[in-house]
Computed example of a mutant assay.
Amino acid sequence: MNPPLTQKKEDRLDVSSENFSSATHSPKGTSKRLLSLDALRGFDMLLISGGGTFLVLLKGKTGLAAVDWVADQLTHPAWNGFTFYDFIFPLFLFIAGVSLTFSLNKGLSMGLAKKELYKKTFVRMLILIGLGIIYKNSPIPFFEPSQIRLGSVLGRIGFATFMATLLYLNFDFVKRLGTAVGILLLYYAALFLVPVPGYGAGDLSFEGNLVGWFDRTFLPGRLLQGTYDELGLLTQFPALCLTLFGTLAGDILAKAWQDSRKIQLLLLAGVIGIGLGLLWSLHFPINKHLWSSSFIMLTAGMAFIFLVMFYVVIDVWKIRKWAFFFQVIGLNSLTIYFAYSFINFRYTSGKLFSGLYAPMPTDWHPVMEALGALMLVWLFLYILYRLKIFVKV
């Protein structure tokens, strides 16, 4: 196994103004790649794309309570509540904000005007919305437009990074923090004070919430949950706050400060976020489906904590060999997202490895098949890494 990213590769992969999947860190004017951000992104994308499926399939097979608990943490609650799996997509939105800080600053240092950066991020948003529609609707029902789902993970990332770009280039640290807090407070007030026809105000049930009514009324096409879509219209705004919080973390990391100061500030932000999220949940339940304000604060706080953990181990202590597995994924995050959907790695896994696990009990076969698929996906990404092929938008 090769060591993580030589300087030669870092130079080739430095962030451009239109590429938000990587970050450079140059507080003293020298290009230094944040390997921790690549690793954290890879860890996150592995779970977003379904790389943890084999862990879910382990439930009830080992007789170990800890394994069953981990499996339960990789599924979403039916409505209110929280599991680790709820944290995965918010973490990516946060990471996008961290990367955005470095890429925009690099664009400005290269002499690009704000107007040019707006244009690039707007075009990128449109491309991601299009790719998201393809991903969520394949095969696309071209002749039944009412069955096309418009909400998507990629579309949400595109919208969040575009809006965060507008705010980052015009608002300082304090104003962006105030904007994020203001959005969460307004969202909180809207869900409790705006009456929903037939249900009234403050109804946070599956059928009666304002988010669902807004989607049913204004969002064309198919809604994932029938009465609403968790990637619909109103939830775009609280989700945007995660990317704004990410830009705050990026600002801290980009400062020419001692690592100890950066770590203290990131940890403090994480503790405050988690504390406020739990406190807010006493009245506004933690709910990923609604992207409730308490959910945003909780996951933002967790994102700060995860970022600082990866940063300390990889970029401060320089303990990096273990992170290479995730860095390979993080450098091709869009590729793994689409590969798991459009390439049947589990079928190939069965064809290649089923003879090895055939003697095992039959209920273990899906577990081994999923594990083999994960190995094949990583090998595919490693080959792309060796060939220096990185798919970006």
Rank of each mutant, 00 (worst) to 15 (best):
V308R: 02
V328D: 03
V312Y: 07
F306R: 13
I305A: 09
W322E: 01
M302A: 15
K318P: 06
I272V: 07
T299P: 01
A323R: 00
I272E: 11
W317R: 14
G275D: 09
M297W: 11
Y311M: 06
I296E: 11
V328E: 03
F284R: 14
D315W: 01
I274A: 08
W291K: 02
I286T: 10
S293F: 12
V316I: 04
V316S: 10
V312I: 12
A303R: 09
S293N: 07
I272Y: 07
L290W: 02
W291V: 06
T299W: 00
Y311D: 06
I296V: 11
V313M: 05
G277V: 02
D315Q: 05
V308D: 01
M302N: 15
V313S: 01
L298Y: 08
L279W: 14
L307E: 05
P285K: 01
T299A: 02
A323Y: 00
I286Y: 10
V313K: 04
I274L: 15
F325N: 03
W322H: 01
F324Y: 13
R320L: 10
I305N: 09
L307R: 01
I319G: 12
M309H: 15
F304Q: 05
K288V: 12
M297G: 06
L279G: 13
K318M: 04
Y311Q: 04
F295Q: 13
L276H: 07
F295S: 13
P285A: 10
F284C: 09
F284T: 14
F295G: 13
A300Q: 01
G273K: 05
K288S: 08
Y311R: 03
F325D: 01
I305M: 14
K288G: 11
H283G: 13
